[in-house]
Amino acid sequence: MTDLDTGTTVNVGRVRGGTEPNVVAGHAACDIDVRFAEDALGQAVEDALKALTSDDPEVTITLSGEIEKPSLARTPETRAMFARAAAINAGLGAPMAETRSGGGSDGNFTCAAGVPTLDGLGAIGNNWHSPQEHILVSPLARRMALLRGLILTYAGTRPTGDLS
């Protein structure tokens, strides 16, 4: 069900079941993580998972859970906000690249509510959620200036053409 072209990933993470190594398992379970770029893609995966059946009449498949977060959609308003952020960042002497992540944040909910939303404006780093997770100190001041510029722009306290 994974389709990298659409940004859809389906990952069977934890798998568990049975009682003893030498006994045919009477039950098994797995945890499935689904990431998607558009809500319709997530719904299509959920529908496909709900439609799973077994060829063995003695085996049943039960799906529980649901999609917990909507997608972080690229709306025209969000694209305009990104262009503004890129302009501010360019004024600070650094390029800004748009990327996509399979993760989710509270921004997914604000975007679904119709609020233009940018995510990932915090610290720059790598190896998130691992013992090697780290941030780079040198870009912190620039990131703070970018956030300040966005806040001042959208709070309406300065003309949008002023990047200082």
Rank of each mutant, 00 (worst) to 15 (best):
157 T>S: 07
76 P>I: 00
151 I>D: 09
131 P>V: 11
105 S>W: 06
50 K>R: 15
115 V>K: 12
161 G>Y: 03
103 G>A: 07
163 L>M: 14
23 V>R: 09
132 Q>C: 02
77 E>I: 10
106 D>T: 10
57 P>W: 02
125 G>H: 04
110 T>F: 01
154 Y>D: 08
77 E>Q: 13
80 A>V: 08
68 E>D: 11
4 L>N: 10
62 T>P: 00
158 R>P: 02
80 A>L: 13
130 S>A: 12
140 L>D: 00
79 R>V: 13
102 G>H: 08
86 A>P: 06
69 K>N: 13
94 A>L: 08
23 V>K: 04
154 Y>N: 03
60 T>Y: 00
55 D>I: 03
163 L>V: 03
130 S>W: 02
117 T>S: 10
5 D>F: 00
77 E>S: 04
102 G>N: 09
143 R>W: 04
57 P>N: 13
15 V>N: 05
23 V>A: 12
121 L>Q: 08
164 S>E: 08
92 L>C: 08
152 L>R: 05
160 T>H: 01
88 I>S: 12
107 G>I: 09
88 I>D: 13
128 W>Y: 07
103 G>V: 07
65 G>P: 07
160 T>E: 15
108 N>R: 04
45 V>Y: 00
72 L>S: 11
35 R>S: 01
152 L>G: 12
105 S>F: 05
74 R>A: 15
121 L>Y: 09
51 A>D: 11
147 L>M: 13
146 L>P: 03
6 T>E: 01
149 G>Y: 05
29 A>T: 09
77 E>G: 13
150 L>K: 06
55 D>W: 01
128 W>G: 11
55 D>S: 15
105 S>N: 06
96 M>N: 07
82 F>Q: 12
14 R>G: 02
154 Y>V: 14
64 S>P: 00
159 P>E: 04
11 N>F: 04
79 R>S: 07
71 S>H: 12
32 I>T: 08
81 M>Q: 12
12 V>Q: 02
37 A>L: 14
132 Q>M: 08
22 N>Y: 05
